[in-house]
């Protein structure tokens, strides 16, 4: 890890004033052909920042800790939504009674993310903003497109863990499983700028596809702080499930995961279904055609099977990840059925 200075401001305004670069900008600035500084970056739990700094992929001059800023770890009920402070640890979110009661799919996902030791430190905001896990991206030896280079090594390289959708420019999968659930739940993010002004947008719109900008996974701007995640309060008729398949049962990234939200009427007919797939595309992926097949149907095995098959439409597997297609079908079929018939 290279040397850096450290500061721990006690106000959002002060932290935002320091934060001249996003982590993504600071990493691109490391390229030998740029003469920009290495930047000043924000840090909450620090799990991903430390990982990047140890690999020397991130070499900031200044690390700005958000930990001393009061109020970033609050979970509170608002009029039509729940507001989760971005500095809340994954463990605290998973253990919150309202999250367990109203957003069980989120609690399930959080309890499978990282290890207990990581969940005790990692924050919800940091989880959403973590950089991708692509091994070319994470290796200093590869000057890849996402780090400002000219080439995606994964598309024609070792790509077993990479995207099967939206993978023409850069084949990362989004690193956050939590984002899979939050996108399905219609979550919004609250971003606070240096003058205290906030902007809110759907998480789905905040996340950036490679075709929009290959050097970043989200629209976070310099001097902007992700301060909260807002979850619309689900109605009583909403059922949900989260399911993943991976190589290990614990402490591993999923090969494929799925979040399913169903709104059922009194006679168990699905009014609306939302599906979000993770680890299959550079952003959490909503197969809209598959969602459409659920509306107006009683959710049974044939309905779930048909929706799961439809979700594969448009898939473009790479040389080593075609195995993900049957996994998508299986995990999605099971998630749809589990949402309709909770265990």
């Amino acid at each position: 890890m290279k040397r850096f200075a450290w500061t721990q401001p006690t106000s959002l305004a002060s932290a935002a004033a320091f934060a001249e670069t996003t982590v993504a900008d600071a990493m691109v600035a490391l390229r030998p052909d740029t003469h920009a500084g290495h930047g000043a970056v924000l840090q909450a739990g620090g799990i991903d920042n430390l990982d990047l700094m140890k690999e020397e992929l991130l070499q900031p001059n200044l690390v700005i800790s958000l930990r001393a800023i009061p109020g970033l770890d609050k979970i509170e009920k608002q009029e039509a939504s729940w507001r989760i402070g971005a500095g809340t640890t994954l463990m605290a979110v998973a253990g919150h009674p309202a999250v367990q009661a109203r957003f069980p799919a989120l609690a399930t996902c959080l309890n499978q993310s990282g290890s207990p030791q990581i969940r005790a430190v990692a924050t919800l905001g940091g989880n959403l903003l973590q950089r991708p896990r692509c091994w070319y991206f994470r290796s200093i030896a590869f000057d890849c497109l996402r780090k400002g280079g000219g080439h995606c090594f994964a598309i024609l390289g070792e790509n077993a863990y990479h995207a099967v959708f939206d993978n023409e420019v850069c084949a990362i999968v989004h690193p956050s499983s939590v984002a899979t659930v939050l996108v399905a739940l219609g979550a919004s993010v609250e971003l606070t700028g240096p003058n205290g002004a906030t902007r809110r947008l759907l998480l789905e719109d905040f996340l950036v596809r490679p075709k929009q900008n290959v050097r970043r996974e989200n629209d976070l701007q310099p001097r902007e702080i992700l301060t909260a995640i807002l979850l619309p309060n689900p109605s009583a008729s909403v059922r949900m499930a989260y399911l993943r398949l991976g190589e290990k049962q614990a402490f591993d990234w999923p090969l494929v995961d799925a979040a399913v939200i169903l709104e059922l009427d009194a006679s168990s007919v699905c009014r609306q279904g939302v599906i979000c797939l993770g680890a299959v595309a550079p952003t959490p992926y909503r197969p809209r055609a598959a969602e459409a097949t659920l509306a107006g149907k009683v959710i049974d095995v044939p309905t779930a099977r048909s929706a799961a098959r439809t979700a594969l439409d448009g898939a473009m597997p790479l040389a080593h990840n075609e195995f993900k297609l049957p996994l998508i079908e299986t995990v999605l079929r099971r998630a749809i059925l589990r949402a309709a018939n909770p265990v």
Partner: peptide, 11 residues
């Protein structure tokens, strides 16, 4: 329990 390798002493 936390992993002490992934937190800065100053933090």
């Amino acid at each position: 329990p936390i992993v002490s390798c992934m937190i800065l002493a100053v933090d």
